Computed example of a mutant assay.
Amino acid sequence: MALLVLAQQSQPFVEFTPAQAKQAVARELGLERIPRPDDAADGLALALAAWYQR
């Protein structure tokens, strides 16, 4: 629904696969590997997103 609204308003957006998001977290934090379990990587991704929204 959110993507539909953005498209209707001609707002730009990007989509990432779960793997791309996890790889970005690892790069951003300077980690050699993607954090495991997947929930840990997802939690870090959300924390980083919240941090950058401040």
Rank of each mutant, 00 (worst) to 15 (best):
P35H: 06
D39K: 13
I34H: 05
Q23D: 00
I34R: 05
D42H: 05
Q11V: 11
V25K: 00
Q11I: 12
A24N: 03
D38K: 13
A21H: 02
Q23P: 01
A50H: 07
V14P: 00
Q53N: 13
E28T: 10
Q23M: 01
D42M: 04
R33I: 01
L29D: 07
A40R: 12
Q53W: 03
A40N: 11
Y52R: 13
A49W: 08
A24M: 11
L4S: 09
E28G: 01
L48S: 01
S10R: 15
K22S: 08
L4C: 08
A47F: 10
L44H: 09
A47T: 13
Q53T: 06
L31F: 06
A49L: 15
Y52M: 07
Q23R: 01
L44Q: 09
Q9C: 08
A50Y: 03
Q23H: 02
P35F: 02
E32P: 02
A7Y: 05
G30L: 13
A47P: 05
L4H: 09
A21V: 14
V5R: 15
A2E: 08
L48G: 00
P35C: 04
P12W: 06
Q8H: 13
L46R: 15
R33W: 03
E28F: 02
M1E: 12
S10T: 08
A50Q: 09
P35M: 05
A21Q: 03
I34A: 03
A49F: 06
A26V: 01
F16G: 00
A24F: 02
A21Y: 05
A45M: 13
F13C: 04
E28Q: 10
W51A: 14
Q23Y: 00
D38L: 10
A47Y: 03
F13Y: 15
W51N: 07
L4T: 11
P12E: 12
A41Q: 02
